[in-house]
Amino acid sequence: MTDRMRELASEIVRLQTELDREIETRRKVLGWSVKKRLVAFEHGIARENRRLRMTVRSFLGKSPLATILSAPVIYSLILPMVVLDAWASLYQAVCFRVYGIPRVSRREYINFDRRHLSYLNWIEVLNCLYCGYANGVVAYVREIGGRTEQYWCPIKHALKISDPHSRYHDFLEYGDAEGYRARLDAFRDALKAEAEAAAEGGVAR
């Protein structure tokens, strides 16, 4: 990675930190906070949220017929998602232990907290549970794949990759044969160091 690339990566981290601060400020404006993974609304805000809940009849009445008829197709994806979730979990439980790669914490990617929003009716809650699970599984599997790629092939592609995973920017440049031979073990050692740090910190996996 060149000095300019390191500079840009550092700027990305800085901007992400700034964005996180803005999100926290917005949370306070909306009257909610998170403590020990539990979300709490101010009493008045919670009451107003319940008032804004749409009845199921109204919700269905405003939904286009095509949307209702396509719902079974959308929800049919739950089957491959569950298989992917289970298979990826088994894969990392076996292979990551063998390679010394830190296992990905599933709970950091799959979250069902939107079911507590009192302004959602039960259909909207179900939709949110489904979307949270499906997108969470994709993100979870993506991180598993990213760690696998760092171990076996930490090389950037010649062609531009749209929205690469978080580890990709640190990979070796395409065509850097000398760097690949010299630094492959360093990439693997970095993963092992992550695993050791997680173990020392008592992180649940």
Rank of each mutant, 00 (worst) to 15 (best):
M1W: 09
D3Y: 06
R6I: 12
E7D: 12
S10T: 04
V13A: 14
R14F: 12
E18F: 09
E18V: 09
I23Y: 15
E24G: 04
R27L: 06
K28I: 08
K28Q: 11
K28R: 15
V34N: 03
K35G: 02
K35R: 12
R37I: 00
R37Q: 05
L38K: 15
A40H: 13
E42P: 01
N49V: 03
R50I: 09
R51N: 12
L52M: 15
R53N: 05
V56K: 05
S58Q: 15
F59Q: 04
F59H: 15
F59N: 07
G61M: 07
G61H: 03
L65A: 15
T67A: 15
I68A: 07
S70V: 15
M81T: 10
M81I: 07
M81W: 10
M81D: 08
V83H: 06
L84R: 04
D85P: 00
Y91K: 04
Q92S: 01
F96K: 00
R97Y: 09
G100M: 02
R103L: 06
R103S: 08
S105F: 00
R107V: 07
E108R: 12
Y109C: 03
I110D: 00
L117V: 08
S118P: 02
Y119F: 15
Y119W: 11
L120Q: 07
N121P: 01
V125Q: 08
N127Q: 13
C131D: 10
G132L: 01
Y133E: 01
N135Y: 12
N135L: 15
V137F: 04
V137L: 03
V138D: 13
V138F: 15
V138H: 13
V138R: 15
V138A: 14
Y140N: 00
V141Q: 00
I144A: 01
R147E: 01
Q150A: 11
C153Q: 14
K156W: 04
K156N: 06
H157I: 02
H157G: 07
I161W: 05
D163V: 13
R167D: 14
Y168N: 03
Y168W: 09
H169M: 13
D170G: 14
D170R: 13
L172Q: 02
Y180H: 11
Y180Q: 09
L184A: 10
D185S: 10
A186N: 10
R188A: 00
K192C: 09
A197M: 08
A198Q: 12
E200M: 09
E200S: 09
A204R: 14
R205G: 02
